Measured scan of single mutants.
Amino acid sequence: VPQRAWTVEQLRSEQLPKKDIIKFLQEHGSDSFLAEHKLLGNIKNVAKTANKDHLVTAYNHLFETKRFK
């Protein structure tokens, strides 16, 4: 089981690129989880459509539901 890579403050910070969060989610989330949160596909394309709040919610949801690969 992966550990949380970032704190809530870090997740919301401008310093953390959306692409980093997407990469983490794609590496650790199950396909059904990723599909549900519309996070499947090319990281660049996902970054265009997903806002930061959406990614933070998905990140927290992944750990709450433990839907890891």
Rank of each mutant, 00 (worst) to 15 (best):
1 V>Y: 13
1 V>S: 09
1 V>P: 13
1 V>R: 07
1 V>Q: 13
1 V>K: 06
1 V>N: 12
2 P>I: 06
2 P>Q: 05
2 P>M: 05
3 Q>E: 15
3 Q>R: 09
3 Q>L: 10
3 Q>V: 10
3 Q>D: 14
3 Q>C: 14
4 R>S: 09
4 R>L: 06
4 R>D: 07
4 R>E: 08
4 R>Q: 10
4 R>G: 08
5 A>G: 11
5 A>E: 15
6 W>D: 04
6 W>S: 03
6 W>T: 03
6 W>L: 03
6 W>G: 03
6 W>R: 01
7 T>Y: 03
7 T>I: 03
7 T>N: 07
7 T>G: 05
7 T>K: 03
8 V>Y: 08
9 E>S: 04
10 Q>N: 05
10 Q>C: 08
10 Q>E: 12
10 Q>Y: 05
11 L>E: 01
11 L>N: 01
11 L>Q: 02
11 L>R: 01
11 L>I: 06
11 L>G: 02
11 L>A: 02
11 L>K: 02
12 R>A: 13
12 R>Y: 15
12 R>F: 15
12 R>M: 15
12 R>T: 09
13 S>F: 03
13 S>A: 05
13 S>E: 06
13 S>W: 03
13 S>D: 13
13 S>H: 06
14 E>G: 14
14 E>P: 15
14 E>L: 06
14 E>N: 15
14 E>K: 13
14 E>Q: 09
14 E>S: 13
15 Q>W: 11
15 Q>M: 09
15 Q>F: 11
16 L>S: 03
16 L>M: 07
16 L>W: 04
16 L>Y: 05
16 L>I: 14
16 L>E: 01
17 P>M: 09
17 P>K: 14
17 P>N: 09
18 K>Q: 06
18 K>Y: 05
18 K>V: 11
18 K>T: 12
18 K>L: 08
19 K>F: 10
19 K>A: 14
19 K>V: 13
20 D>A: 10
20 D>V: 14
20 D>R: 13
20 D>L: 11
20 D>S: 09
21 I>C: 02
21 I>M: 04
21 I>T: 01
21 I>W: 01
21 I>G: 00
21 I>H: 01
22 I>D: 00
22 I>R: 00
22 I>A: 03
22 I>P: 00
22 I>T: 02
23 K>T: 10
23 K>M: 10
23 K>E: 14
23 K>S: 11
23 K>D: 06
24 F>L: 02
24 F>K: 01
24 F>S: 02
24 F>D: 01
25 L>E: 00
25 L>K: 00
25 L>S: 00
25 L>C: 01
25 L>R: 00
26 Q>H: 08
26 Q>L: 09
26 Q>K: 07
27 E>T: 09
27 E>L: 08
27 E>M: 10
27 E>C: 08
27 E>G: 07
27 E>I: 07
28 H>M: 07
28 H>G: 02
28 H>C: 08
28 H>I: 06
28 H>S: 08
28 H>Q: 07
28 H>A: 10
28 H>K: 05
29 G>F: 02
29 G>T: 01
30 S>M: 07
30 S>T: 11
30 S>N: 11
30 S>R: 06
30 S>A: 10
30 S>V: 05
30 S>W: 03
30 S>G: 06
31 D>Y: 13
31 D>R: 14
31 D>E: 15
31 D>H: 14
31 D>G: 11
31 D>C: 14
32 S>D: 12
32 S>G: 09
33 F>R: 00
33 F>S: 00
33 F>H: 02
33 F>K: 00
33 F>M: 01
34 L>V: 04
34 L>Y: 00
34 L>G: 02
34 L>M: 04
34 L>S: 01
34 L>A: 02
35 A>T: 10
35 A>C: 13
36 E>T: 06
36 E>P: 01
36 E>H: 09
36 E>G: 07
37 H>E: 05
37 H>A: 05
37 H>K: 06
37 H>I: 03
37 H>N: 08
37 H>W: 11
37 H>F: 15
37 H>M: 13
37 H>P: 00
38 K>S: 12
38 K>T: 07
38 K>I: 04
38 K>A: 13
38 K>D: 10
38 K>G: 12
39 L>F: 03
39 L>Y: 01
39 L>I: 07
40 L>P: 01
40 L>N: 12
40 L>F: 11
40 L>T: 11
40 L>M: 12
41 G>T: 04
41 G>P: 05
41 G>E: 04
41 G>Q: 04
41 G>W: 03
42 N>I: 10
42 N>R: 09
42 N>T: 14
42 N>H: 12
42 N>P: 15
43 I>N: 05
43 I>P: 12
43 I>G: 07
43 I>D: 05
44 K>T: 14
44 K>M: 15
44 K>S: 14
44 K>N: 15
44 K>V: 15
45 N>G: 11
45 N>Y: 15
45 N>M: 13
45 N>S: 14
45 N>C: 15
46 V>K: 04
46 V>C: 06
46 V>W: 04
46 V>Q: 04
46 V>R: 05
47 A>G: 08
47 A>M: 10
47 A>E: 15
47 A>I: 14
47 A>D: 09
47 A>V: 14
48 K>Q: 14
48 K>Y: 13
48 K>R: 13
48 K>W: 09
49 T>Q: 13
49 T>R: 14
49 T>W: 15
50 A>Q: 09
50 A>K: 12
50 A>C: 11
51 N>L: 09
51 N>S: 14
51 N>V: 10
51 N>H: 11
51 N>Y: 08
52 K>Q: 05
52 K>E: 03
52 K>Y: 12
52 K>S: 04
52 K>V: 06
52 K>C: 08
52 K>T: 05
53 D>S: 09
53 D>Y: 07
53 D>A: 07
54 H>L: 10
54 H>V: 10
54 H>F: 09
54 H>M: 14
54 H>N: 12
54 H>Y: 08
55 L>A: 03
55 L>V: 10
55 L>R: 01
56 V>A: 14
56 V>G: 03
56 V>L: 04
57 T>N: 13
57 T>S: 11
57 T>H: 14
57 T>R: 10
58 A>W: 03
58 A>G: 02
58 A>R: 01
58 A>Y: 04
58 A>E: 01
59 Y>E: 01
59 Y>F: 04
59 Y>R: 01
59 Y>H: 01
59 Y>L: 03
59 Y>V: 03
60 N>M: 12
60 N>I: 14
60 N>H: 07
60 N>K: 06
60 N>L: 15
60 N>T: 11
60 N>V: 14
61 H>F: 09
61 H>T: 14
61 H>L: 12
62 L>D: 01
62 L>S: 00
62 L>R: 00
63 F>E: 01
63 F>N: 02
63 F>H: 04
63 F>L: 03
63 F>V: 02
63 F>M: 03
64 E>V: 09
64 E>W: 07
64 E>Y: 13
64 E>L: 08
64 E>Q: 08
64 E>K: 07
64 E>A: 08
65 T>R: 06
65 T>L: 06
65 T>D: 12
65 T>Y: 15
66 K>G: 13
66 K>P: 03
67 R>H: 07
67 R>M: 11
67 R>I: 05
67 R>S: 15
67 R>A: 14
67 R>G: 08
67 R>E: 14
68 F>S: 02
68 F>C: 03
68 F>I: 04
69 K>C: 07
69 K>Y: 06
69 K>E: 05
69 K>L: 05
69 K>T: 06
69 K>S: 08
